[in-house]
């Protein structure tokens, strides 16, 4: 959907300092650009629950983190998300790649991930927007800044 350069530019608009991630095949194409970006640190985790915790620590320490993960990682990270967003009330922001979203809409995939991504985000009470074909990386930055202005957590779903 977006190139690595476009994502890096969007993150700079949002003054993001750290990307905490475990990428999928769509998000992973940004690896080189994120790794090379000046003023941006890329932190790789082993499982997505860690990403929320690391981002929480960064935020407590005054940094501006963002989390990138696939929807399967979102499902796995549930308790960590619950704790940091709803027990500690931290305004963390994350980008979720929704595997097979477009194929599912076209009736061409039996992947169950698209069935659950939006309902689970709603169940976790996380405001989000969906970006798909025709969206721009700037939309990601705008939503990050909108969440920050509201002192709330937020998410972007990327239709893959």
């Amino acid at each position: 959907m977006f190139s690595g350069a476009e994502v890096v530019a969007a993150l700079k608009v949002a003054s993001v300092t750290h990307v905490v991630w475990l990428p999928d095949s769509d998000l992973g194409i940004w690896d080189a650009a994120l790794s090379a970006a000046d003023g941006l640190s890329l932190i790789r985790v082993c499982r997505e629950g860690e990403a929320f915790a690391v981002a929480a620590g960064l935020w407590l320490g005054g940094q501006r983190p963002i989390i990138f993960l696939q929807c399967t990682g979102l499902f796995e990270a549930g308790d960590s998300l619950r704790n940091f967003l709803h027990d500690l009330h931290l305004p963390l922001f994350f980008v979720v790649g929704v595997r097979s979203y477009k194929a599912h809409r076209a009736g061409a995939s039996s992947d169950t991930c698209p069935l659950f991504a939006e309902p689970i985000l709603k169940a976790w009470k996380v405001p989000f927007i969906l970006l798909s074909d025709g969206s721009a990386a700037e939309d990601l930055a705008a939503e990050y800044l909108r969440a920050e202005a509201g002192n709330r957590a937020g998410a972007v779903l990327l239709a893959e």
Partner: peptide, 12 residues
Amino acid sequence: QGPSLGLGLALA
């Protein structure tokens, strides 16, 4: 998640 939280703080 304590160590991961601590990692973020330590990096910050």
